[in-house]
Design a protein around this nucleic acid. Structure first.
Lengths: 222, 222
DNA sequence: CAACGATCCGGACCGAGGTCCGTTTAAACT
DNA sequence: AGTTTAAACGGACCTCGGTCCGGATCGTTG
């Protein structure tokens, strides 16, 4: 089917690898060794996309408009980012990397040093805030159903949750439980609850703490 | 923007109504009083769509092909079903109605008569099986992120879960917890786990029972 | 510096979802 | 039967995501 367009190889593994904390960030290897013109165009495209998103919203972003705004051919956009979702994801990449760094090397309780359950609590609250901040992009960048759970950032975050769960509940099915916890933090759900149901963020945070307590069979904090 | 096409009004309320169990099925009022030709075309379209799905899979279904196979104009398909998702949803409607009936009036423990926690357990297992059976359609019929949680069938099912939860945990935030439980049963997640990760259905069922136990702070069955 | 191959570029092209609007028709009313 | 009107019809049309491939460019090698 697709003969040209080798790059942007779209990770597609089927089984979780041994899942020791892969220190790699989990975001696709972005700029391994791009040719000079390619790197320049990539930067221009990202800049143009960011500007257009700011102007017309993420939902109104069209690939053709980005190409035009960057004075670049349409094919170039797709070669670089694969598809629309890839472009939106790239726009979120900086924030994503920062967040991952905070989990791996940041201060407790988000980073290492605090007890796992406490880190879980902090993780959810941080995710909620981040999700609300970047709601528009997060929603627009949602991958198609069959890719949603294999996309590197999601894999990383879920792996993190699974790790913390395993430290707390060595005998539980941390894999499945981590999916459940991650689902509570799904941007589409958060959007529905906050925007369409008027649920305040504080209630979502309380809900997260309560959920963590139930899942880990611990007492709620305070 | 859209001046014509009044029907298929796409429910879009923003806040959960008092959520007493709406005995209505929750699926859109399908055939309230269609004109004779409209009803005939609707039937032909559904039949044609079902045949095409059987032949080429749900993912390969195109609106134009359905229209052609039913010897009907393309506009007719969209007027009747709103969009592709609406057509796919209509294909699932029969099964959906049967399932809802089983919840409301079927035999325990799925239907009324059993203790709430037990009904929750049965609900999840039934959902898992149904999801696996109709996986292809379920995935193809997934609505866009902003509609996903307001679509009638989902509202009904989640309302059911919330009701059972409220009977078990009068003091908990049944609303949020019901979203969490429903998320475990999300077709896209089930698909990912079973098809892409090789998780057997039995493990998903055990996982559901365990999740219900943790969320309700009860003991796992057996 | 010349030559060469890999990479990249651009925009014509395609398919499919969704819309528009002039025309047709069911069915209610006289 | 004749009239009327709201509803339904159909297919041309538009938009946008995604693909293709002939030609331009980079950077490497001799």
């Amino acid at each position: 089917m697709s003969a040209a367009l080798p790059p942007v190889p779209r990770p597609q593994e089927t089984v979780d690898p041994p899942e020791l904390l892969q220190l790699g960030t989990g975001t696709d290897a972005d700029e391994p060794c791009l040719r000079a013109d390619a790197a320049r165009n990539r930067a221009r495209l990202l800049e143009a996309a960011a500007r257009l998103v700011a102007e017309h919203g993420a939902a109104g972003l069209t690939m053709e408009a980005v190409a035009a705004a960057a004075s670049v051919g349409k094919g170039t956009v797709f070669r670089r980012f694969g598809d629309r979702t890839g472009l939106l994801t790239a726009l979120l990449d900086h924030s994503e990397k920062k967040f991952q760094a905070a989990l791996l090397r940041g201060p407790a309780p988000l980073g290492p040093g605090a007890p796992p359950v406490e880190r879980l609590r902090a993780f959810g609250c941080a995710m909620l805030r981040r999700c609300v901040d970047e709601m528009e992009l997060q929603l627009a960048a949602e991958p198609s159903p069959d890719r949603r759970y294999t996309v590197p950032p999601r894999r990383f975050l879920r792996g993190h949750v699974a790790l913390l769960l395993r430290q707390t509940l060595p005998d539980a099915d941390a894999e499945l439980l981590s999916h459940t916890l991650m689902a509570y933090l799904d941007p589409a759900l958060i959007h529905h609850l906050t925007e369409q149901c008027g649920v305040p963020l504080s209630r979502l945070e309380t809900g997260w703490l309560d959920l963590v307590a139930r899942v880990t069979r611990t007492d709620p904090p305070r």
